[in-house]
Nucleic acid binder design. Structure first.
Length: 449
RNA sequence: CGGGCUAUAGCGCAGUCUGGUAGCGCGUUCGUCUGGGGGACGAGAGGCCGCAGGUUCGAAUCCUGCUAGCCCGACCA
């Protein structure tokens, strides 16, 4: 993309409404614009990041054997009355009345609707296990929205629902989700720690929240520092292996890690003192196993091999997609702006032409742009007439992980510069080598798609 | 929902106390110069001063009501 033809409304000054760093940077970098309290428009650059996150989630869910689908945002109140949640949910559920005076809701979650779909079409144990999911907008009429997209009223969320014949099968689904979520977050450049959680209004027996450590997090967390050394890395996961999924789950959940909701002082104090940590965290996902709570209420049963009827064991599993954009920024920024992890960056690399109108500089930038695009990369070329300093400041603010700087001074020696946004390390190399280097950086991710 | 605050140009703000032609910085448009970390000079454009009512010869400014947004708390993915 050429910056001169793009829509990137950056702000030099911080809008007064924004308090925390990710909200400020999202507004300043032109990612979002507030439409009303807790409701945001996603401008082109923010939308690109949202889509990147979404793509990673889809890839990892499909890899785990889960099926994408899509359910409506507006639902009839009837199903919610059937489950008992129409009254239980309270004022956070946005209630709407249509022209025929029917009660409708803007959905905050979809257990009822998916269970209704399930009971209409699945009648045999042979159709199990089944896990479906969607990535869809949700709405919770928060009393006090804040922190930008991290605690909005409208939010984009992946919500998955698993159906199994037995508790054991359902726990495998639980473990499978835990592992796939770990992979998902790692691909986004985030460390999200599974912590034992409280089930809240969704209900359930087993539940873990995934938390990203950040000073601005809403939850107080307590953990054994050894847990931060754990990574999945590139280990090969066989999602149909119950043993392997369970072992990974055990590895990642056996060390102490809890939010203040479930914190146990005695257990915490049993950790060697030098490894005890208290910090703050942002919740970016949660998995639940809740047994037959909804299948009983909504009568979702299958026929078993011996001919009897059995309520299915369910779980639901969520990732806060829009919230993740804020969480990633909270975990990846400096005083100049955002520092996107390669997996979610809106553009792979920035090209800065230091002297627009200079024949050699223009030609080199054009060639770089063509070659990078030819490698399947998505560069942002700053072809405007701004001063060098302004171009650098913009690139730093929007946080592209790599920048190629082209100017007459370097071109005299046949070189351009490749700079890492994160480390600030800058190397001089030929423009052909710069293209090759950037292509190499992104090659592993390209192959995963 | 309790407590506090704000609303004036695209953004950040002054002006309100003490009523009298709407201001500043940034951004933006045009021109010239400049050209490796938000550059300089010159000339412009851009406002129902949140909305409604009242007081007054006259209201951004005083009074009443409303709306929207923000902060702290409680609550929450």
């Amino acid at each position: 993309m050429r910056l001169s033809r793009y829509f990137l409304p950056i702000l030099k000054e911080t809008p007064a409404e924004a308090q925390i760093i990710s909200h400020r940077l999202m507004l300043r970098a032109g990612l979002i614009k507030q439409a009303s309290a807790g409701i945001y428009s996603w401008l082109p650059t923010g939308f690109k990041v949202l889509r990147k996150i979404e793509d990673i989630i889809h890839a990892e869910q499909i890899r785990a054997g889960h099926h994408p689908m899509l359910m409506p945002t507006i639902q009839s109140a009837d199903l919610w009355r059937e489950s008992g949640r129409y009254d239980a949910y309270g004022a956070e559920m946005l209630r709407i009345r249509d022209r025929h005076d029917r009660d409708m809701i803007y959905t905050p979650t979809a257990e009822e609707l998916i269970t209704d779909i399930f009971r209409s079409h699945v009648t045999s144990y042979r159709d199990l296990p089944l896990t479906v999911y969607q990535i869809q907008w949700k709405f919770r009429d928060e009393m006090r929205p804040r922190f930008g997209v991290m605690r909005g009223r409208e939010f984009y969320m992946k919500d998955g629902y698993s159906f199994d014949l037995t508790r054991e099968d359902a726990l495998h689904a639980y473990n499978r989700h835990l592992v796939s979520y770990l992979r998902t977050y790692e691909r986004m450049g985030l460390q999200a720690i599974p912590m034992r959680a409280d089930s809240g209004p969704i209900g359930g027996d087993d539940t873990h929240e995934f938390l990203v450590l950040a000073d601005t997090g809403e939850s107080e967390v307590f953990y054994d520092s050894a847990i931060t050394d754990l990574t999945l890395g590139d280990r090969d996961i066989n999602y149909s292996s119950t043993g392997q999924c369970r072992r990974v789950m055990e590895q990642f959940t056996s060390l102490y890690a809890r939010t203040d909701e479930t914190h146990d002082e005695a257990l915490f104090n049993a950790i060697p003192e030098e490894r005890r940590r208290t910090a703050r965290g942002i919740e970016v996902g949660q998995i639940f196993y809740f047994g037959t709570q909804y299948s009983d209420a909504l009568s979702a049963k299958v026929q078993t091999s011996d001919g009897s009827q059995a309520a299915v064991h369910m779980g639901s599993h969520g990732i806060g997609v829009s919230r993740l954009v804020g969480a990633i920024i909270e975990a990846n920024h400096d005083d100049k702006g955002i520092i996107w992890p390669e997996g979610v960056t809106p553009f792979h690399v920035g090209i800065v032409n230091l002297k627009q109108g200079n024949g050699a500089a223009d030609a080199t930038c054009e060639a770089l742009y063509r070659q990078l695009t030819g490698h399947g990369l998505d560069p942002l070329y700053d072809d405007t007439n701004e001063q060098a300093g302004a171009k650098f400041a913009t690139m730093d603010l929007i946080g592209l992980p790599w920048r190629i700087t082209v100017g007459p001074r370097g071109l005299k020696n046949g070189v351009v510069e490749l700079t890492s946004r994160r480390s600030g390390v800058c190397v001089e190399l030929t423009s052909a080598d710069a293209v090759a280097r950037v292509a190499e950086i992104y090659a592993p991710q390209g192959m995963e798609k």
